[in-house]
């Protein structure tokens, strides 16, 4: 048991060290791509809290990404850099609030209805962004510079360089991963996993399951808002496409590809999906067809995603599993 924990810690540290070296080995294009992947990985693990741990298949997770991104863009002043210490918490708060409002209504449903309700709300958010001049309509909005970390007039950090922005995003990914890991291992995490496997039983044990499902939904929304903010400033641009159902579908694919219910799996899934997308797009203009094929093959041969493959390769002591 401790051996497994040590191995996990060693792998985690090795991956972090490898990611920290990225700016030294790749060019600017791939650095930007890695920044985008790191932000998408935050989204994927936040969606995994819903999909893999709470049993809530949200087809509208992009809405919170969009709210975080748009809030970040709307709060950015035109002629100077935004202060991250103010704009980031406000963007996360906006995503959290919207997640709460949508969640209050959506958690009354479950299964296929939950999927449809979350999709419907996300599409509503999409059209609000798409059809409202205030939000820039279908053109979206430009952000004119990357944020700074300022206390009063004192600039603590200027995130305008690609390297420092990458490290900032990576830092947020690591913190998000650790936070979500603590959440799923906490008593709260056990309760939502209990709800996933048998909601009625949890109610019979005395847990107000709706409140726990709502809390889980809001937490996931908050992390999605963080990721949205980071993505918006990475691209220095927000557009309604960020909130669309295709985006929500892509996020679900990342989680399924990586293996839901593991947190690290969806993060790897984000990396793999974007990497495969880039690779196939270089090969042919019809890369989307190949991408579809790739996903189908993964689902058929690796039903538990990459995490399932890892578990198959690395099985601890099989001998421990004896029977009654």
């Amino acid at each position: 048991m401790t051996g497994t924990a040590k191995l996990r810690m060693a792998i985690l540290l090795a991956v972090i060290a490898g990611l920290a070296l990225v700016p030294f080995v790749v060019g600017e294009f791939y650095l930007l791509l890695m920044t985008k992947i790191a932000a998408l990985a935050i989204l994927a693990i936040s969606l995994d809290l819903l999909l893999g741990y709470s049993g809530m298949i949200s087809f509208g997770h992009a809405a919170f990404l969009g709210v975080g991104a748009y809030a970040g863009a709307m709060l950015a002043p035109e002629y100077e850099a935004a202060n991250m210490l103010i704009t980031l918490p406000l963007s996360i708060a906006a995503a959290t609030l919207v997640a709460f409002l949508i969640g209050v209504l959506a958690i009354r449903t479950s299964g296929i209805y939950f999927i449809m309700v979350t999709l419907a709300f996300a599409q509503m958010a999409f059209y609000v962004a798409h059809d409202t001049p205030f939000f820039g309509g279908s053109d979206g909005r430009l952000i004119f510079s990357k944020p700074q970390v300022r206390l009063g007039d004192m600039v603590l950090a200027d995130l305008s360089g690609n390297e420092i922005y990458y490290y900032t995003t990576l830092g947020f990914l690591i913190v998000s991963y650790l936070c979500l890991t603590m959440i799923v291992r906490s008593p709260f995490g056990q309760i939502i996993q209990g709800i996933k496997s048998n909601e009625q039983r949890m109610r019979a044990l005395g847990f107000p399951t709706d409140k726990y499902r709502l809390a889980s939904f809001v937490i996931a929304g908050a992390f999605a808002g963080l990721a949205g903010y980071l993505l918006a400033y990475q691209a220095e641009y927000v557009s309604p496409a960020m909130l669309g159902w295709q985006q929500s579908g892509l996020l679900l694919m990342m989680v399924i590809l990586g293996g839901s219910g593991t947190l690290w799996g969806p993060a790897v899934g984000a990396f793999l999906l974007i990497a495969v997308e880039e690779f196939l797009a270089d090969l042919t203009g019809h890369w989307m067809g190949l991408m579809g094929l790739f996903i189908v093959l993964i689902v058929i041969f690796l039903p538990h995603g990459l995490a399932g493959l890892a578990a198959r390769i690395y099985r601890p002591t099989e001998a421990e599993v004896d029977d009654d």
Binding site: Q200, M202, R203, A204, L205, G206, F207, P208, T209
Partner: peptide, 11 residues
């Protein structure tokens, strides 16, 4: 609701 009943001391 059943979660309220469970909290009355029924298991």
């Amino acid at each position: 609701a059943s979660h309220i009943i469970a909290r009355q001391g029924l298991a």
